[in-house]
Design a protein around this nucleic acid. Sequence first.
DNA 1: TGATATACTGTGACCGCTCACATCTCCCAG
DNA 2: CTGGGAGATGTGAGCGGTCACAGTATATCA
Lengths: 352, 352
Amino acid sequence: MRRATIREVARRAGVSYQTVSRVINNHPMVAASTRALVREAIAELNYHPNAQAVGLSRNRADIIGVITHSIASPFFAQIVDGTAQALQAQGRFMLLGCAGMTSQLETIDSLQRSRRIDGMIILLPLSTSVEAAQRLAASQFPLVLVDLQYDIDANYIAIDNRHGAYNATEHLIELGHRQIGLISGPLNQPVAHLRIAGYQDALRKYGLPYDPTLVVNGDFAHSGGEAGAAHFLSLDDPPTAIFACNDQMAFGTVRTLRRHGLRVPDDISVIGFDDIAEASVSYPPLTTIRQPLFEMGRLAAEYICHVIDGVESERLRLTLTPELVVRNSTAPPRGLSSAADSLVDKTGQSVL
Amino acid sequence: MRRATIREVARRAGVSYQTVSRVINNHPMVAASTRALVREAIAELNYHPNAQAVGLSRNRADIIGVITHSIASPFFAQIVDGTAQALQAQGRFMLLGCAGMTSQLETIDSLQRSRRIDGMIILLPLSTSVEAAQRLAASQFPLVLVDLQYDIDANYIAIDNRHGAYNATEHLIELGHRQIGLISGPLNQPVAHLRIAGYQDALRKYGLPYDPTLVVNGDFAHSGGEAGAAHFLSLDDPPTAIFACNDQMAFGTVRTLRRHGLRVPDDISVIGFDDIAEASVSYPPLTTIRQPLFEMGRLAAEYICHVIDGVESERLRLTLTPELVVRNSTAPPRGLSSAADSLVDKTGQSVL
DNA sequence: TGATATACTGTGACCGCTCACATCTCCCAG
DNA sequence: CTGGGAGATGTGAGCGGTCACAGTATATCA
């Protein structure tokens, strides 16, 4: 079942191959009768253009590369979903590279040079140095970094992590919490520091002391939340609220708290960050800081396509403001309802 | 920053373009000295082959298409993750098409004919008729259907849904449950019927009556579980256990039960199907029927690659047996066993 | 009536590579 | 010393399109 070529269609329709090409590409300079003839031949031979030949000739592929280190994570999956939708609307395809955390840069580099893709969307974090990322961004190749967290000259879509963390912390403070535990992200990711900074900003703003024993490192995964919660419960004076720096960790936190017989939010409040899809359907529905993940993926794709089409040439520098979404995992601290700010009325519930 | 071509490299190295091609493709018939010379020129010019030109010439693309209707669903994401990993190991790329539930067949068809991809993995369900799927499978194009549920002549990787559902139901029966609610999948998907059949098999085997009021349709999404649970709770004599036909619905079920003040598994047991990643970290950890999702994705990719490479020509007909994974969302019905339920932590609390 | 614009169609070269085959060296057996 | 085979390299054609340009009709105008 060989595929028909443009010349075979031409022979069948009794025209030249160029005319067939014109018909395929909707060039106006074709007589209606000829067009019909060619269309017929195309249908009869079940002809479809060879995308690689077109690509070679036009020097483009109509494929956009998307690099992430895991598609199994809901966070990335939701961004990719947005990208996929936008690309489909553009008639373009998506080459998905799950590079793991190793050799991402190598993958990116070879992909970029292979002419297989016209542009690339990179979902950070990227396991590479800032310098390498800067070099990458400096190339002429159409490129968008999504969730950029450091300061380089590149096209990026980011969110104001510091502000988001500030909002999360402020929300807890305004509910009356004074002892707020923080489970941060991995410290080798800039985002972790930004969110810690936002947490500190809020404490400072409200005149609360910064207590390092209330800050613990996490891994942005479920297990990090579990470990963090376990740590807090082991303290003599556990926090009344926990800010987990992403939703996955928040879920781990909630689970561990439950396992220890604590109710969320009655006994202890938990707030997350990201607003992945599960956040709204978890039990209890998670109060969190919303990142417009789908939107970010969509915008990145649309920008890239515009650059490729020559419609857009400005640098993309988009910092979105995350939004507090109050659901049911946060509440005023126990017993606050009666007295104003007495937070010391811990019931001394035993952990374990 | 024009890309160097093979002829430029040849000129620089003082050899013919064919020799450069030989070096690139590790053809043995090249003198070591020449090889070194060419390698040097390649490095100096920072040459990378144009994948589209290679593809056009060799008539392949080293890209595998993966079609799903959503990447945001953890079920599909985990399969895709397995596929991605396997393809990367093969030095191939993945073109991901999220076709939504509309026009999947059209997407598939045009993709297949475009020569953009060498083979295709389709993650069912597919919004198309069995006949169309059969036609698709009948083409020479390398194709694997993952999670195939109906009987057509195609390469497929499936799981024994009926058996899995039987196991799930049996597990509940053996725990002592006699009133078992079923929340099925959408009835337009064959898998729904298969799982219902497995449920019925188990009832029959254990001499339990089939009560249609205990069977309700779901949508394989969170909301279906919520609606199903709400329905059961409205019955005069609610079931003591619920089999939700996938994990997402199981989560929805658990959530609704909790909201109504019921504890899982103390007051009512819930079992799911799929074993998506969240199942092991939910609260309580979900008893479910495990599908080896990652594995399925991996196997599909490996098979496709073998077919393309001509290593494999047999039809792929793989029906995996799902496996019962007992976690903490199932227990004997209330009051049945005085001692046996000590396997579950008793800290479940009623909320609200 | 011929010049010229206009609508349409065809030809050659090329995109960057691979393939099949031709050629050219060199070395060794007869 | 010469023929032949192996090793190494070069050449032409082609993959299936597109582009720029060159044609060829027909219509329009002076």
